[in-house]
Design a protein around this nucleic acid. Sequence first.
DNA 1: ACCAAAACCGACCTCTTCGGTAGGATTTCG
DNA 2: CGAAATCCTACCGAAGAGGTCGGTTTTGGT
Lengths: 162, 162
Amino acid sequence: MLFSTKAEYGVRLMIELGRQPGSTPISLNSVAEAERLPLSYLEHLVAKLRKAGLVTSTRGAHGGYRLAKPAEEITMDAVVQALEGQIAPMECFHETPEGRVLCSHEEDADRGCATKLLWTRVQNGVTKALAGTTLAELVEFSAPHPRAESHGRSKATVVHAA
Amino acid sequence: MLFSTKAEYGVRLMIELGRQPGSTPISLNSVAEAERLPLSYLEHLVAKLRKAGLVTSTRGAHGGYRLAKPAEEITMDAVVQALEGQIAPMECFHETPEGRVLCSHEEDADRGCATKLLWTRVQNGVTKALAGTTLAELVEFSAPHPRAESHGRSKATVVHAA
DNA sequence: ACCAAAACCGACCTCTTCGGTAGGATTTCG
DNA sequence: CGAAATCCTACCGAAGAGGTCGGTTTTGGT
């Protein structure tokens, strides 16, 4: 399995937040109920998202979470990375801040590290897929196709849930 | 981490086999020494590769393993899949033999499963990267460019790669 | 015939992560 | 105040990762 349910749940959480029109914070509890996920577990996940600066929180009664920036500006690589940690296909694959890729077993430096070539390609594939998908896109996709075919379709419309 | 060292070690093993010119089988022991990997562990990995039809074995003295087909015809998706199992980005992501993708939590079928869209893209990225890389390519890449430096520091005397 | 080199096989072991629970603090609104 | 919420830390069972070990079987060489 490439990713764990951390990514799955976390993304679902983000989508749930992105689905909300205004800037009123949503409680984790309602997210947990909507997605039928354990609240206590979501707490851990949302903490990572908050530390990564993807969501902001309001404490106290009627508090909750909301997106730190518009969904169009949130790409999924940031989300997944916040939840799962560095997106590296392999243990021996550390990316320095400058973007250089290191490989643990580079003693035999005269012959190129063949697996590095492979994993680099894989990583590119994953990163491109993630970075090329915005939260807005997922929210849009998951929208429960509104009843009327007539337009006037804005995302400022009223929520469906109770 | 996307993949475990199973894939890393297994790919290194395959490369080692692919580097050998003739059809003489290579013992796991020599592979283990060349790559500095534990022999007993490699046994488990090579068993998977054999069951997947990627390598063939000869038992007894002077036995060993060799590629089941030319390295040009071995793509890395088959190798990685043999070692790591189904390449799925997420638990709830089962691909039927016909290529249809199932999703576990499809109760809310009227609104599209947004994460499925995301994971499908990721999987495509990975699969394309893996399927687009042949073993021959990696062998070529890992060849210790012998002609460039005319000094004999090489471990393999005459490697007519490619 | 025997021995050594190899593939084969399965049980075991330790460590980390995953997925989740529990219990409590702390903050804020009504 | 008290309910609703975030926040924080610790723990826990199951599963997988990454091996190790001991043994069996097959085979070539002498």
